[in-house]
Amino acid sequence: MWKLSKYIFYDIVRNKVIIAYTLFLFIVSLLLFNLEENSAKAILSLLNIQLVTIPLISMIFATIHYYNSYEFIEMLLSQPLSRSRVLWSEFLSTAASLILALIIGMGIPILLYSSNADSFALLLTGIGLTTVCTSIAFFASVHSRDKARGIGIVLLLWFYFALIYDGFVLMILFNFGDYPLEKITLLLTALNPIDLARVSIMLKMDVSALMGYTGALYKEFFGSFSGILYTGGIMIMWIIIPIYFAVRGFNRKDM
């Protein structure tokens, strides 16, 4: 699996889209660190960029890559390789190259301008989010018939996670405003990886104070060891579950 992943990885990192993505992140990060006098503010702006760009780029790139590799995957499958191995290799190398782009594009500026715990938490969250989105994209790609449909589905998913889901959260908050919603809100953020990433970073960046008593409660929770386990655990679930069902579907699929 590693050998195969390695070769695919070498291919993807030289892909123009990945190079452009790296450059984009790099330039934007540098600009933000230079424009914002306060590096904490830059980190918050980077968070905003992360939350939009990472899911969008990761999902669309992974989907396009999957369909562009279809014939190659077919060829690989005619070799003595199990299907799970082939798909896992594709997944790992796609995620790895997107992560590498993030580490170079955002990590180097962070290292240069703001190497503190908050920034690395941001980077780590970005890495988690990249992997989650790649996983979701593979799930969508394996289960949809053609490239156009696959891209359509991941765009919808992105739209849902980035925008529509929060709309539902807002509706729930307003319709059930009379009930204690702290726990529910916490649960709701866990059901959307983008929200989970956003909230965990936001609370790290001390925005918790704005949330008054509730915020202090959340901060205590997300800052504690069990909170970190919870966040990490949910993120890992968001990685494992889609790719697991992607592999399962792929094993049963007719190429």
């Binding site: 050998k3 195969l4 993807i12 562009n68 014939e71 005619s78």
Partner: peptide, 25 residues
């Protein structure tokens, strides 16, 4: 197996492709 249409990863070099398959087999 020789497929009807062979498409391979864009940036992969011919030599690498042979290497890869040799290592798989």
């Amino acid at each position: 197996y020789m497929p009807q249409i062979g498409r391979y990863p864009d940036q992969m070099k011919v030599g690498q492709l042979f290497q890869l398959l040799k290592s798989i087999r």
